[in-house]
């Protein structure tokens, strides 16, 4: 998107990092939702489909978490670093003007 339009619409706050985090959270709840559903399914057809979807959801979660670790947006092994990052993100969100 055009930088000026982004600034005008406030869309510049929606950085790649925010989008990636959203995707990670969605992937996580996706895995959990599917795991719940798989154990409720009895019909083999549905169970097969759901198991496959669960595997795909896991793959997406793996891809996006690896991507975020690579980018330094997700410190799985360094709690202190992650807290620092989270505090920064909270601050950014709080200081965001309401449209």
């Amino acid at each position: 998107m055009n930088k000026i339009v982004e600034k005008l619409t406030g869309m510049d706050a929606l950085t790649d990092q925010v989008v990636a985090m959203d995707l990670l959270v969605s992937a996580k709840s996706g895995v959990r939702n599917y795991a719940m559903a798989v154990t409720e399914a009895g019909t083999p057809e549905i169970k097969e489909i759901l198991t496959r979807h669960l595997e795909e959801a896991l793959e997406l979660h793996e891809q996006i978490s690896n991507y975020m670790i690579e980018k330094g947006w997700y410190h799985a092994w360094d709690t202190d670093e992650q807290i620092k990052l989270n505090l920064q993100n909270i601050d950014t969100a709080l200081k965001l003007p309401t449209l």
Partner: peptide
């Protein structure tokens, strides 16, 4: 809305 090609690819 994303600019990074790798993130775009995952999406």
């Amino acid at each position: 809305l994303v600019s990074d090609p790798k993130l775009k690819d995952i999406m």
